[in-house]
Each structure stands twice: as C-alpha cells, then as structure tokens.
Write a protein that binds this DNA or RNA. Structure first.
Lengths: 146, 146
DNA sequence: AGAATAAAAGACATCAAGGTCTTTAATGAG
DNA sequence: CTCATTAAAGACCTTGATGTCTTTTATTCT
C-alpha cells in the first residue's frame, strides 16, 4: 500500500527539478541527492531512466544537469509508477487466490475491484504538477530532508 | 497492491485445512503443499508461525498434522497480514513525501487516506471464514493448483 | 523400549530491490 | 585541443523475501 523507494526518489527528484527550474535552468545530481537526502548514485540511475522515458531533459558537461520539459508537469503519477517498474498486476487476485476473477469471484472480489479502480483512477488523474505547490513557501520541506 | 506470497500461502493453507477438516481431523503438510502447489518446507515455516499465533493447531507424530480451532474462521484477514509480516505503514505517506500528514497534507492526502481507510476496514471486517465457500463444489480450485 | 511418522528448527541457497564505486562519454571554457 | 565538469553506464555489494535441505523433537504404535 506504499510505493517503492525508487518511485519515491523519482517523484521527489522530478519535483525538485521542477521547483528549482523556476530559478535556474539546470540542477545537478549532486545537489538533488544532497537536498533530498537520497543516495547519489542510485538516484542517478533513476534520473537516467526518467530522461530515457521523456520525463526530464539532461545535459552532460559543465553547467549541465537536469531540467523539466513542456510535458513534465502533465505526466500522471501512474506513468511514474510504470517507469519505476511496478508490474501493476491488475487482474491478478490481491489475496493470491487462484482462479479468482470476474467469472469465479471470491467473496471479496467486487469490493476489492472497486477499491482498485478508485486507486487506479486517482493515480491516473493526478499529475506531477498537481503535487507542486509553488505558492506554499515551505513546500520544499515536503520533499527534502527529514 | 497485492499482498506477499507468504500471505497468500498462509491464507490458502488455512483455507485448505479448514476445508479438509470437514472430512478428517488432521491434514499433513505434505498433502497441503502438493494440493496447493506450494514449496513444502517454506510452507512449513508459515504454518509453524500460524500455530504459534494461535490461528491453527498442530500435532506431531503419526496421524499428526494441522487442524483449525474454534476461532480460526473468525480471524480477520488483517490479522493474517500482521502475522505474515507486512509492517502496515499506516501513517506514512504512500507517495513517500516527507512531512506529508494531516497537518501538512499533500494535495492527494485526503483522497489517499479515504482509500486507505476503506482497505483497512475491508480487511478488518472480512474473516477467514468468509472466504470459505463450502457450498461451492469446486471451491477447492480457487485455492489449489493452477 | 524401539521404530516409524510428522512437525519444528536451523543452516544454507537464490533472487530481486536497493545501494556503492569506478569507468566512460559528452560538453563547455579557455 | 585540452581540460574540467557532469551525466551515463557498468561492475559489484548488501539486504530482505523466498526457497531448499538436514537435523531435532514430539508422538503413536508395536
């Protein structure tokens, strides 16, 4: 019921980049890792994936770093979940019963499906930008260090 | 959004014991493991835990095996989840944002809390016995082999 | 008591997620 | 062109969930 660490790093990383992009064109991995208290090299892997998937832009070399693109803030959280690699086993029984499906539902099946659909729709309709409270002065604290 | 394999083994194991207890007083690990297509020794560990936690009764030696007790079918799924060791991090942000709580909620906070509470209450109110469809002739297939 | 049976217990093996360290490639400044 | 800088890539380590194998303990039957 809680997403992976990798997902958390990705989300917070993107939010940090978006936030600092208001002030400067690029942020470096070093700064992000320190500010978010996240293992630097591991974060590097996550960011690389985000770039490859078109969520962020990166530039190598001096004055390089990460920045957002036009679509970054419109990307739904569900996409981030896919990218950070939860197989999202929709369709398989939460309780790991075999042969539990719409044709042969277990007694909880309907209720579980309803809850799942609500999750899915919440995650699909919420976009990264929806979590970015630029107005809120200490928003950075929500994503930064303890 | 899907529980651990260990949880699945525990649930299916208990259901299998409850089901066969209608016919014979005890079932052996061997039979359960084969019928459920589950690794025998690993299942042994899970069953041992269930016995220690009072979910099942076990007897060693010839004609020994596992059986249910008076309360087994009244145990809520939430208890099985605790026993099979999900820390159930209620209270921590699903999105892994820091400092996201009722005082300083992220924009999704309320919706997520609502969904979580629904899950919690479903898992607390559904009892093991609720999943046991003795009336349904091929119920065994739901928990047994593929 | 002794043999057979079955769970309990404990020592390892495997695998994926998460994390660290080093090397390579790209880019801008002088 | 060369150098410093920074992301990308790859090799390896750690840890927890899962799985296997062997030994011990309790029980029943003869």
């Amino acid at each position: 019921m809680v997403f992976s660490k990798t997902f958390g790093y990705a989300l917070r990383g993107v939010l940090y980049v978006a936030l600092t992009n208001e002030v400067k064109p690029r942020v470096q991995l070093e700064e992000i890792a320190i500010q978010l208290s996240v293992p630097r090299h591991f974060l590097g892997k996550v960011m690389k994936k985000l770039v490859k998937e078109g969520v962020l832009i990166s530039i190598k070399g001096p004055y390089g770093g990460f920045s957002v693109n036009e679509t970054t803030l419109q990307i739904p959280l569900l996409r981030l979940i896919e990218i950070t690699g939860e197989p999202e086993e929709f369709g398989s029984c939460v309780l790991r019963l075999r042969k539990c499906n719409a044709q042969n539902p277990c007694p909880m099946h309907r209720q579980i499906e309803t809850l799942r659909r609500q999750w899915q729709s919440l995650l699909a309709s919420t976009k990264i930008g929806d979590l970015l409270r630029k107005d809120q002065p200490d928003f950075i604290k929500s994503i930064a260090t303890l």
